[in-house]
Simulated assay, not measured.
Amino acid sequence: MSSNATLTTWQRLAGFAEAVIDHNTVNFWASKLNPLWSINQPMARIVARTEAASNSVTLILKPNRHVVMPQAGQHITVATDINGVRIARSYSTSSVAEQPGLLAITVKQIEGGRLSNWLCLQAREGDVLYLGQPFGDFQWPAQQHPVLLLAAGSGITPMISLLRQYAAQQLPSKQVVQLHYWVRSREEACFIDELLALPKIQPNFSLHVYLTQQNQSQPHEYTGRINTSHFSQQEDLSNSHVLACGPSGFVSNAQQILQAQVASFQAEAFSPPQIRPDAHDNETVQITLQRQQRILTIPTGQSILAALEAEGINHPSGCRMGLCNTCACPKVSGTTEHLISGEQQQDENPALRVCVSRARSNLVLDI
């Protein structure tokens, strides 16, 4: 038999197996032998956990073979079953020194956050998490211009990943890098020891920590929320590349202050976008869920995802910022508005991101 014929035979057998094998059944029995065994599901086992700050933990994960290792600055969707319901959220990942087969996530405990509370308070070594594939374009600028990193709260997690990549260079970099990091109190600041040690490796790095609810007491500490005075004496600002990450309000303020003054500005907000109020916010529309054969009446003043969850529908979601596409579903008909751009769409959409869309008319969704 020729090699082409053999390949065709194997392709047919693979197609047949794909059609007749129930992956969920195989995964269930495989997990009885080894929790990380799966025919198609990316998963990881927690192999260590440490306290990162007063309300944050770092979890070290050992992924199975279906997980694509993220690049510095990327996110990954993490999920687990809590009280019989699978809850998923997206977290920035970071590398684990001298252990390239592992990855880490640092999770801040959020009031009312079901997954963050479980990860911070209940998750233990040996627990298995379901993972998505990496996403995001938050990357170190290619040009050797000055870099300004702006982080607030949990926005430090993609920054530490990028800075570890920066620190790993064989020779000290000539690139000037500054990290401006806002937290409410020094007890909430993550990775401080690592950041304070970084100038010994990369002399052109400097750290500025801003405390919004505490007085400064250390040389690297300052007080106050982000404002123009923090950058008024900045050298070579017009050639600087800015990466900003934090709540949507922080990112919006950073853009207003710096975007027109710098060479480039890249930002990611980890909180859902705020909906612009208008005269139609108190109106309601009907959403038809084709596969579930349900018709819901929802308000137009919130995202479609939030409206579905308010009706008890556990629709898949991840980042809740329109980045990961976990929540995307086909829109058959109706008008929607993008919460960030304000753009309205009336045509069919094979991948409507319901976390950053609201209804502007009656909708039919393939859910």
Rank of each mutant, 00 (worst) to 15 (best):
217 S>P: 00
13 L>Q: 05
266 Q>R: 13
168 A>F: 01
323 L>R: 07
182 W>M: 04
96 V>H: 05
116 S>F: 05
62 K>I: 01
119 L>M: 08
294 R>K: 15
357 S>R: 13
9 T>L: 15
129 L>F: 05
125 E>H: 04
253 N>S: 14
210 Y>S: 15
252 S>I: 10
333 S>E: 13
266 Q>S: 14
262 V>W: 11
253 N>E: 15
129 L>Y: 06
167 A>H: 03
134 P>H: 10
258 L>I: 12
347 D>R: 12
305 L>Q: 02
307 A>C: 07
198 L>R: 06
118 W>M: 10
358 R>C: 11
188 E>T: 08
118 W>S: 07
100 P>W: 05
25 T>G: 03
144 Q>F: 04
274 Q>D: 09
178 Q>K: 07
1 M>P: 09
333 S>N: 06
159 M>W: 07
247 P>M: 11
298 I>D: 02
94 S>F: 09
6 T>H: 12
294 R>Y: 02
162 L>I: 10
294 R>N: 04
40 N>P: 10
47 V>P: 04
17 A>W: 05
346 Q>L: 05
120 C>N: 01
131 L>Y: 01
125 E>N: 13
306 A>H: 03
54 S>I: 08
268 E>N: 06
137 D>Q: 13
242 V>Y: 12
192 I>W: 02
47 V>R: 00
20 V>N: 08
316 P>F: 07
164 R>H: 07
169 Q>T: 12
117 N>S: 15
42 P>C: 06
77 T>C: 11
257 I>E: 12
96 V>K: 03
178 Q>H: 08
203 P>Y: 07
